[in-house]
Design a protein around this nucleic acid. Structure first.
Lengths: 138, 138
DNA sequence: TTTTTCAATGCAACAGAAGTGCAATTAATG
DNA sequence: CATTAATTGCACTTCTGTTGCATTGAAAAA
């Protein structure tokens, strides 16, 4: 049993071939992936399966969904310490308007915000847009 | 000439009947509105017109588009001091998961984030999710 | 005032993302 | 092996957003 299979089982997700492949793909790619990316890579597979796989992954805390403002949902593997399963995923994301890639800045946490009376924050989503390190050239 | 007409002209937008109505609607509603909201209110009007009106408003700095993570674009009138026309709209938004409404917290600015070497931030979007003051009951 | 011109609107069709119901297949369990 | 449940494949639908083109309407020029 591979490491990936173990990871999936630990999260009570049956390690099927499809799921292992998708997990592997996401692990290799360092950036957040969109559905279309995955579709292009796994052309033989059904779109629905891919959707449902990602949904399952998300529900089980294997990936987290990222809304980077492009109106296209992206997904990234949760890392150790990623607390998105608690609806408290506080790291921020960076979307490069040049290469159109979105990365997790896991080491950068969202600062605490003092809300007005009566507001109760449960989740936070912070996306910075601009030019990433690869595109800025240093 | 009404105040709304003047506002539109100041932003070099021709104050047509449709545009005045949409502006009025958004001014009365305090929260951010979705396309579907506007469609439901102005059933006689074409969906395309509404889209294009909002796009024009956005380009001219009359409204700003909000991505609150629901995958449905929302719009809110820019207020005095709202600098979204500079692509630097730094106030944050709150989305209530109970009533599903999104409000601008214009007085709450997004804190500065120190990015890793090579990253250049040009825009920022911060959305907090949770329970709003009306739904929390105090 | 009439004509010209251009912006605004209406209409139709399209594209892409996402979700659903159901059948077929596959894997786990007794 | 048989039963059961989960997974996947297929077809279809919905919803958001966009585009091209014809038509209308309003402002500016003749």
């Amino acid at each position: 049993m591979t490491k990936i299979e173990k990871t999936l089982e630990n999260k009570s997700v049956r390690p099927t071939a499809m799921r292992i492949l998708i997990y592997k793909y996401m692990a290799e790619k360092k950036i957040a992936v969109a559905m279309t990316d995955i579709e292009n890579v796994f052309e033989k597979a059904e779109r629905t399966t891919l959707y449902r796989t990602l949904k399952t992954f998300e529900e089980k805390g294997i990936v987290h969904q990222i809304d980077d403002g492009t109106n296209i949902s992206k997904f990234a593997l949760c890392e150790l310490g990623c607390s998105c399963e608690l609806d408290q995923d506080l790291h921020l994301h960076f979307h490069c308007s040049n290469c159109n890639e979105t990365v997790c800045l896991t080491e950068h946490k969202i600062p605490h915000i003092n809300l007005p009376e009566g507001y109760i924050a449960e989740e936070a989503n912070l996306v910075l847009k601009g030019i990433c390190d690869k595109c800025s050239g240093h």
